[in-house]
C-alpha cells in the first residue's frame, strides 16, 4: 500500500535550554493510504502535538515528516499553508466553522481558496453535504446547527479540498453519543468506500473501537501500535 505519511524520528521539545519537555519523543511512524487510525493516550501524552506535526501545523525540533514524498519540514511557512490546503483535511474538536458563512459556504470556502471553478464547487458542495446527511441544511449558519451537524459540515469541509488524508483532533469530544455514532459512521463509510485516510486523536472508547489501527502514546512516545497495515 502507498505510504502517505512517513515520520522519521520526530521530536518536539519545549524549553530545550531550561527544563526540556518532550511533547513528542523520537516518534517513528508510517501511515498508509486508507488507514483508519486512532491516536490514543492520556491527556498530555502528545496526541495533539503529534497531529500538529503530521499536519504541518507545527515543526518538529528534530526529525522530519514526509507526506506523499514531500519533506514538509523543509517547506517555508507560506509553502506549508499551500501544502495543507491541497493535501490535508482538518477536523477540529470544536468544529471551527466560519460562523458568518452558511454550511454550503463553509464547505465551498476551501475550494475557493484552491481556485476551483464555480460550477465544480457547486456540484461538489451539494454532493459532500448530501454525503454527510446535511443536504437540507445547506443554507443554514453554524449557530443554527447542532454540534453533531456542525462536525459533519467540518468533515465535508475537510473532504472538499480532496485531501490525501484527514486529521481529526478529538472529533467526538463535544458530541453526544448519537451524534458521535453518526459522525463515526460517516467517517468509516468515507474510509471504506472512498479509501479516505483518517487519523484522529481520541479518548473516546467508541472511536477507539471503530479504529482499525490504534497507536498509543505515553509521554510523547509510542508505546503500542496495533493493527498496523503491513508494508509491501
Amino acid at each position: 500500500m502507498d505510504t502517505i505519511i512517513d515520520a522519521h524520528n520526530i521530536s518536539k521539545v519545549y524549553n530545550p535550554d531550561t527544563i526540556p519537555v518532550y511533547a513528542v519523543n523520537n516518534v517513528h511512524l508510517h501511515v498508509h493510504a486508507g488507514e483508519f487510525t486512532a491516536l490514543v493516550g492520556p491527556s498530555g501524552s502528545g496526541k495533539t502535538t503529534l497531529l500538529n506535526l503530521l499536519g504541518g501545523l507545527d515543526r518538529p525540533t528534530s526529525g522530519n515528516v514526509v507526506i506523499n514524498g514531500v519533506d514538509i519540514t523543509q517547506l517555508s511557512p507560506s509553502q506549508l499553508i499551500d501544502f495543507r490546503l491541497h493535501n490535508i483535511g482538518f477536523v477540529f474538536q470544536s468544529f471551527n466553522l466560519i460562523p458568518v458563512l452558511t454550511a454550503r459556504e463553509n464547505v465551498e470556502f476551501i475550494m475557493l481558496l484552491q481556485n476551483v471553478s464555480k460550477k465544480e464547487r457547486d456540484q461538489r458542495v451539494t454532493a459532500l453535504l448530501a454525503e454527510v446527511g446535511l443536504a437540507d441544511k445547506m443554507n443554514v449558519r453554524p449557530a443554527q446547527l447542532s454540534g453533531g451537524q456542525q462536525q459533519r459540515v467540518a468533515v465535508a469541509r475537510a473532504l472538499a479540498s480532496k485531501p490525501k488524508f484527514i486529521l481529526a483532533d478529538e472529533p467526538t469530544a463535544n458530541l453526544d453519543s448519537v451524534a458521535a455514532t453518526k459522525l463515526l459512521d460517516i467517517m468509516a463509510k468515507l474510509n471504506q468506500e472512498e479509501n479516505m485516510t483518517f487519523i484522529f486523536s481520541t479518548h473516546d472508547q467508541r472511536v477507539i473501537d471503530r479504529a482499525r489501527r490504534v497507536i498509543t502514546l505515553v509521554d510523547g512516545a509510542i508505546t503500542s501500535d496495533t493493527g498496523q497495515t503491513p508494508t509491501d
Binding site: G55, L57, S78, I81, D82, R84, L85, H86, F90, F92, N96, I98, I110, L113, Q114, R157, S161
Partner: peptide, 15 residues
C-alpha cells in the same frame, strides 16, 4: 483563534 484556524485549513496570510 479564528485567524489561526483559517491559516491551518489553508488560507494564505495574504488572503
Amino acid at each position: 483563534y479564528e485567524f489561526g484556524m483559517l491559516m491551518a485549513i489553508g488560507m494564505k496570510r495574504k488572503r
